[in-house]
Amino acid sequence: MKIAFYGSSILSSYWNGAATYYRGILKALAEHGYDITFFEPDAYDRQSHRDIEPPSWCRVVVYPATAEGLHGVVRQASAADVVVKASGVGFADDELLAGTMAAARDDAVRIWWDVDAPATLAELHAGPAHPLRRALPELDLVLTYGGGEPVIQAYRQLGASDCIPIYNALDPSTHHPVPHDPRFDAELGFLGNRLPDREARVEEFFLRPASLLPDRRFILGGSGWADKACPANVARIGHVSTEAHNAFNCSPRAVLNINRDSMASTGFSPPTRVFEAAGAGACLITDFWAGIEMFLQPGTEVLVVRDGADVAELLRSLDADQAARIGQAALRRVLAEHTYDRRAVQLDRVLKATLDAKRKELAA
């Protein structure tokens, strides 16, 4: 089965938090026999910050971020059995959605794959004339990387035929325990790009505990933080490429997950960082969000906090042995239940059932 997948980037994680997700799920899907072509625009300087070269399990087409480049790749949707337009491609998203779905064959499955569903749904509810809102009834399926029942029901109410979460997960071949790296030595590490609906939560859950524990070292990784005012004990280390994520997760006493506002309020949306950290055996601290127990058990596999004061209190009492026990318990859980291989089995069933139902309908 051929898949044409139009996304932000599979080659670069630079200003592109979805890269790990795309790599994990598509690599696992390719192992089930799918022939995948990933189309990504040459935008946001991502191509000069590649983390990987084009992989063997996926053909990658990088196209110019121009009208001509867009037109060239849109036409290629006609060769696929499954056509996927992901959210947040970053160049001419509305035109790309309209073009790829129009170019798809009548017997192809048309999919909107939302990697930021809470934010997308807020846009759709605020804009009745939004192009995606008009397109939803004509699509065969909505997939999301999180959101749970609230997102499923919201998409169905907006006219989607169905909405199925394909949650983030772990690829143990890329994210796994490694030796301690002195570059990332710290009491607490946080890795995430600076975004408007994340910054206030970073101030509360990361910078506030740093100010409360001035004798402890904190490291802040990700793009956009260079001019952010931080306590003196916070080291801003900039973009951390994916090949260094394991060392980043394994070296601090604990690592912190901070959800964006929309995902925290919706819940059921574990970001890739949760599984990357757990896969490395890191002691993970996360802000609270509904549904976390579906993925990790609070108290034994992950530490859950409500504010920055909670983070500081945890760090005062967290010793190396306790951190190691929590990290190892998280690693066992994600290896048993939350790998991309498992997600691919689920997705394979969904795609085949959807394609089969569509072709039966056309034949009737």
Results as ranks from 00 to 15, higher is better:
361 E>P: 01
191 L>Q: 04
96 L>H: 03
350 V>C: 12
153 Q>K: 06
205 F>Q: 06
328 Q>I: 01
319 D>E: 06
112 W>R: 00
231 P>K: 07
179 P>H: 02
292 I>K: 06
184 F>V: 06
244 A>V: 01
357 A>K: 04
11 L>S: 12
231 P>M: 08
32 H>P: 04
196 P>T: 14
241 S>E: 14
337 E>N: 10
359 R>M: 01
53 E>F: 06
259 N>L: 14
333 R>L: 05
58 C>S: 03
14 Y>S: 05
134 R>H: 10
217 R>K: 14
253 R>T: 03
308 G>N: 08
219 I>N: 05
145 Y>A: 14
206 F>L: 15
235 A>E: 15
126 A>P: 04
364 A>I: 10
99 G>L: 01
358 K>R: 14
39 F>G: 02
184 F>S: 05
20 T>L: 08
220 L>R: 11
188 L>C: 11
182 P>Y: 07
97 L>G: 05
280 A>C: 15
12 S>M: 10
351 L>N: 00
132 L>N: 01
193 N>E: 12
124 L>F: 02
26 L>E: 08
320 A>W: 02
206 F>E: 14
311 V>T: 08
361 E>C: 02
98 A>D: 02
209 P>C: 07
348 D>E: 07
354 T>M: 04
310 D>C: 13
36 I>L: 13
155 Y>I: 04
237 I>L: 13
346 Q>W: 07
157 Q>F: 11
169 A>W: 03
236 R>V: 15
271 P>K: 00
289 W>Q: 15
137 P>A: 06
99 G>D: 00
224 G>Y: 10
321 D>H: 06
128 P>S: 04
290 A>I: 09
164 I>E: 12
223 S>M: 08
25 I>L: 12
97 L>I: 04
37 T>E: 13
314 L>T: 10
78 S>F: 10
130 H>I: 12
262 S>I: 04
346 Q>S: 10
4 A>Q: 11
62 V>H: 01
114 D>Q: 00
75 R>C: 12
86 A>L: 09
182 P>D: 12
69 G>E: 05
7 G>Y: 02
53 E>K: 13
67 A>V: 13
206 F>D: 14
252 P>A: 02
327 G>T: 01
281 G>P: 09
333 R>F: 06
101 M>S: 01
288 F>N: 08
310 D>K: 11
2 K>Y: 05
127 G>Q: 15
176 H>V: 01
9 S>H: 10
50 R>Q: 12
229 A>K: 14
283 C>S: 07
53 E>W: 07
358 K>D: 06
110 R>F: 03
304 V>C: 08
219 I>G: 02
222 G>A: 03
327 G>V: 00
59 R>Y: 11
236 R>M: 03
43 A>W: 13
83 V>Q: 12
162 D>M: 10
75 R>L: 14
330 A>C: 12
228 K>A: 13
168 N>Q: 15
161 S>C: 02
46 R>P: 04
117 A>M: 05
137 P>H: 06
215 D>C: 05
37 T>L: 09
